[in-house]
């Protein structure tokens, strides 16, 4: 994307995000929070995808973070705000342990294992009835910041900035080289001195930590958690669809996809409350078939005649 245009758009988006709490009511703020949350998840999913590893475990780490946060408050009396970085830390440690076991796997084997792990987290939490509240979940006495819409908005924005900051770090540092090399050609990456396992582990732990952080923010925003709500397939499918629609292997693509699909989802939820996920499925199929590089890829093709940035 043209750098000046990107800067102008980023400045405009920043201005809208900063002024929104002062201008908008509760409903638009909640829509904005949802979009920011899914945008952050989409960006983290894409960060790992840059290595070629496709994770279907976003909801697992997100739900784990959500439960870590709410249980830290309810069972250990931890302050709500502190419980969010605690959730991130716990998710990161779990990802580190799991990573040692599963990051030797590639392609669909890795994807299936991440999907299975998310389900295992859900089942374990659902069955620890005394500690987690079981299928009925747990409820806090109140929400973070006394339920202040603008307070929760700023908190979610903070979560988004953490994800965007990490993604920018991935893009602008040696990590970009490492992950792109691994995705392009593992043999050449190894023979160029890339320690594949180490970089994959870093990407997996960082993205999982942020997903846990976002789970903590989410649960503190709503004040309750049930296995069905925080481990919902929405937290895997929506970010995935957003990143695919906007364009993978970049920070801008998932942002673009999240804005478009986030706004569309609000409309679709009202029109077909129980079937909007079907529309996401259709979007994924259409994007994979007809524009595998997403909208950003189409834009790059149109502006540069197909000579895109190294991806």
């Amino acid at each position: 994307m043209n750098r000046n245009l990107a800067r102008i758009l980023a400045a405009l988006a920043g201005a809208v995000m900063v002024t929104l709490p002062a201008l908008a009511g509760a409903y638009p703020l909640q829509v904005a929070r949802n979009i920011m949350l899914y945008m952050a998840l989409a960006v983290t999913w894409d960060m790992l995808l840059r290595s070629g590893q496709i994770s279907f475990g976003i909801a697992g780490l997100f739900g784990l973070g959500a439960y870590a946060s709410i249980l830290a408050v309810l069972r250990a009396g931890m302050p709500a705000l502190l419980s969010i970085p605690f959730a991130a830390l716990l998710s990161g440690v779990v990802a580190l342990i799991i990573g040692f076991l599963i990051l030797r796997l590639r392609a669909m084997y890795f994807s299936i294992v991440t999907l299975a792990l998310a389900e295992i987290f859900r089942i374990v939490i659902q069955n620890l009835v005394d500690f987690t509240g079981g299928p009925e979940g747990v409820i806090m006495k109140g929400r973070i910041f006394g339920g202040s819409d603008s307070g929760i908005y700023w908190l979610t924005l903070c979560g988004l900035f953490v994800a965007l900051g990490a993604s920018y770090w991935f893009e602008k540092s040696k990590i970009h080289f490492a992950l792109t090399a691994i995705r392009n050609n593992e043999v050449s990456a190894r023979t160029s001195g890339v320690d594949i396992f180490r970089w994959l582990l870093l990407a997996f732990v960082v993205t999982s930590t942020i997903q846990g952080f976002l789970g903590g923010i989410y649960v503190q925003s709503y004040g309750f958690a049930t296995p069905d709500s925080v481990f919902s397939a929405d937290f895997t499918l929506l970010p995935l669809a957003m990143a695919l629609l906007g364009g993978i292997h970049s920070t801008v693509g998932p942002i673009l996809g999240a804005v478009l699909l986030g706004l569309a989802s609000e409309y679709l939820k009202l029109q077909i409350p129980y079937g909007h996920l079907v529309v996401y499925g259709i979007i994924i199929i259409i994007v994979i078939l007809f524009m595998p590089q997403g909208l950003l890829g189409l834009f790059r093709k149109a502006t540069r005649g197909g000579k895109g940035r190294a991806s």
């Binding site: 080289f177 090399a181 190294a310």
Partner: peptide, 27 residues
């Protein structure tokens, strides 16, 4: 020890510049 594998084994979606830079980046 550097290897130029059979069948070229490049990073085809990277520019020449990035391919060359990658050769030194992790040594």
């Amino acid at each position: 020890i550097a290897l130029v594998p059979q069948e070229r084994e490049l990073f085809p979606l990277m520019s020449v510049a990035d391919n060359l830079a990658l050769g030194a980046a992790f040594i």
